[in-house]
């Protein structure tokens, strides 16, 4: 399908939004039968999409204690009753993050980020402006717990140079800090495996743990990607093109999963 340059927002010719490509790419990273702890927003949208397509027995857990919700209205946040709807279990932190994540049975942690660096270190706490002035935004909540403990971590976020800096302003949740292995860092979870942005799908080089390009979304050039990234990317010899969402995936996203476009706008 021909798509014009510039993936920000809606594709001119295909009428497919970058967020929809991200949700579909995220869903494809989740396998049937896996256990995933999801954050709200695009991670949740992607996990619901996976469950309604190729991964019906994916177990989706929210840090608050919610398991396998099937929301019919879009929640404003994790504790919103809308995110409890249709759940098969309602418990708490100790169950989801203690006896599942800490126990080591969670395959995937699916997170967002304010900032992400080349080793997959996540900042969700604060931002610094050019003068160094600090503005707090949030904190870890369950983010550090998920990033420390899940067998692999997927991060989904907008691709902007300032959001992908050489070093995060605050290291909330560790990836491969300093390029070191997870064992060296005393972390049980396997660390970051995929980064899904509105320009590309990225992974981490097995030897150096540095972020590496896996596929570019249709219409995105490698130079454009580099120009929008604040650190040097590992560029493999072959780079694929991210598949666009299928017609059925688009229908599910637009008509059933996020019909009012809260997360996909």
């Amino acid at each position: 399908m021909p798509v014009t340059e510039g993936t920000k927002g809606r594709h001119a010719q295909s009428d497919i939004r970058a967020t929809e490509i991200m949700a579909a790419a995220g869903a494809r990273e989740l396998h049937d039968g896996e256990v995933v702890v999801v954050g709200l927003g695009l991670p949740e949208v992607a996990s619901v999409l996976a469950k309604r397509t190729h991964a019906p027995s994916l177990a989706t857990l929210l840090e608050t204690g919610v398991m396998n919700p099937r929301p019919k209205d879009t929640p404003v946040g994790l504790p919103d009753s809308r995110s409890f709807y249709g759940a098969t279990c309602l418990s708490g932190f100790l169950d989801v993050m203690g006896m599942n994540l800490h126990r080591g049975v969670v395959d995937v942690g699916f997170l967002g980020a304010l900032e992400l660096d080349r080793y997959g270190n996540i900042n969700t706490t604060l931002v610094k402006d050019d003068s160094g002035k600090v503005r707090y935004v949030n904190g870890s909540a369950g983010g550090n717990d998920v990033a420390s403990l899940a067998k692999r971590v997927i991060v989904i976020m907008r691709h902007e140079k300032r959001k992908l800096p050489l070093a995060v302003a605050y290291l909330t949740s560790p990836g491969f800090v300093g390029g070191r292995s997870r064992q060296e860092l005393h972390l049980r979870g396997g660390g970051p495996s995929r980064v899904i942005t509105d320009m590309a799908v990225l992974g981490f080089d097995a030897a150096t743990h540095a972020m590496s390009v896996l596929s570019l979304h249709p219409g995105v050039g490698l130079e454009e990607l580099k120009a929008n990234t604040g650190f040097p990317l590992h560029i493999p010899n072959e780079i694929a093109t991210t598949p666009l969402p299928t017609a059925e995936e688009l229908r599910l996203l637009r008509e059933e999963i996020d019909p009012t476009g809260v997360h996909l706008k």
């Binding site: 800490h102 290291l171 909330t172 070191r180 860092l185 005393h186 972390l187």
Partner: peptide, 12 residues
């Protein structure tokens, strides 16, 4: 005992 916070600025 817990297995989180390692290698983070939170613990630092």
């Amino acid at each position: 005992p817990i297995k989180v916070l390692f290698a983070s600025e939170i613990l630092e």
